[in-house]
């Protein structure tokens, strides 16, 4: 076991875990957008930055090992300032079309911006206005809302073993796209939609069906096959409108959709 201090609290964690994991295991929340416990550390969003005593610079907690004797502060003025700047930068070109975005209400960026955001932005820039890519049958790609956390790309490649999505281009114009910008052809497991922290990847069938806060969500077991994955169904006025998988729900490490494909198709059938 490794013993360290976070925000003055003494905690211990297992060897080889990152500072972020150590914090989360001990009930200390650190904001993050590109982290997913199933995926390798990415270090892209820079929100999980923390200050470590004795280090020259703040470090990304998702990409730093927790080692003995570290003294970590997760919410110092410096860290808050960096998070504010990062969020401000994320929203400089973001279309801010929350009123018509299905993600509104359960959008990670919205929540973080509410918590950290400075209500006044220092930058004036043209908003992204690329039209959504609706070529695929089930998934709508809205690159103007994308913050390039890469979770969709990584879950598809690392977890689903499919690699249907990729980061195309370099620097600011980078976009998440299927190969050659063609229609998304995959197993339609929908994991990319589930992990997306913003409204960049959305279910096409659920579009404009209901606001997220008016859905009543219930966990259930997928009836399609014998695997028994956990599904979270969202219903409104007695009608099932959405099915999704939530992080941390389901049987242990194995996520609900061990068999790719079904939930999405089931969901489609149901409403």
């Amino acid at each position: 076991m490794v013993k360290l201090k976070i925000n003055g609290k003494k905690i211990s964690t297992k060897k080889g875990s990152t500072i972020l994991e150590a914090a989360l295991d001990n009930g200390i929340n650190i904001p993050r957008l590109c982290h997913d416990k199933r995926l390798a550390p990415y270090g892209g969003c820079r929100l999980c930055i923390v200050e470590i005593e004795g280090r020259r610079k703040p470090e990304a907690s998702c990409a730093t090992f927790a080692t003995d004797g570290l003294n970590i502060w997760t919410d110092t003025p410096k860290v808050r300032k960096i998070r504010q700047t990062v969020l401000e930068l994320m929203l400089v070109h973001h279309p801010l079309d929350c009123p018509v975005c299905d993600k509104a209400g359960e959008c990670n960026i919205q929540d973080l911006a509410y918590e950290y955001g400075n209500p006044r932005t220092r930058f004036i820039a043209e908003k992204n206005h690329a039209l959504p890519d609706t070529k695929g049958p089930l998934v709508e790609l809205n690159s103007s809302r994308c913050i390039l956390c890469g979770k969709c790309v990584r879950i598809c490649a690392e977890h689903q073993g499919k690699g249907a999505l990729g980061l195309i281009g370099r620097g600011f114009p980078t976009v998440v796209q299927p190969a050659f910008g063609e229609a998304l052809e995959c197993d339609y497991c929908g994991q990319c939609i589930d992990v997306c922290p913003t409204g960049a990847l959305m279910s096409k069938t659920h579009k404009f069906e209901a606001r997220s806060w008016s859905l009543e969500e219930k966990d259930t077991v997928c009836p399609f096959c014998g695997c028994g994955c956990t599904l979270t169904l969202g219903s409104m006025e007695g009608k099932i409108l959405r099915s999704r998988g939530k992080e941390d729900s389901g049987k242990g490490e194995r996520r609900q959709w061990s068999k790719p494909g079904e939930p999405m198709q089931q969901g489609k059938v149901w409403y």
Binding site: R46, M90, H93, F123, R170, G171, F172
Partner: peptide
Amino acid sequence: TADESCGKCVPCRIGTKVMYDL
């Protein structure tokens, strides 16, 4: 640098562009 940024992390990808625009 804005042109050559890989696009992975936010401060570099958007920050350098915002600075360039300024």
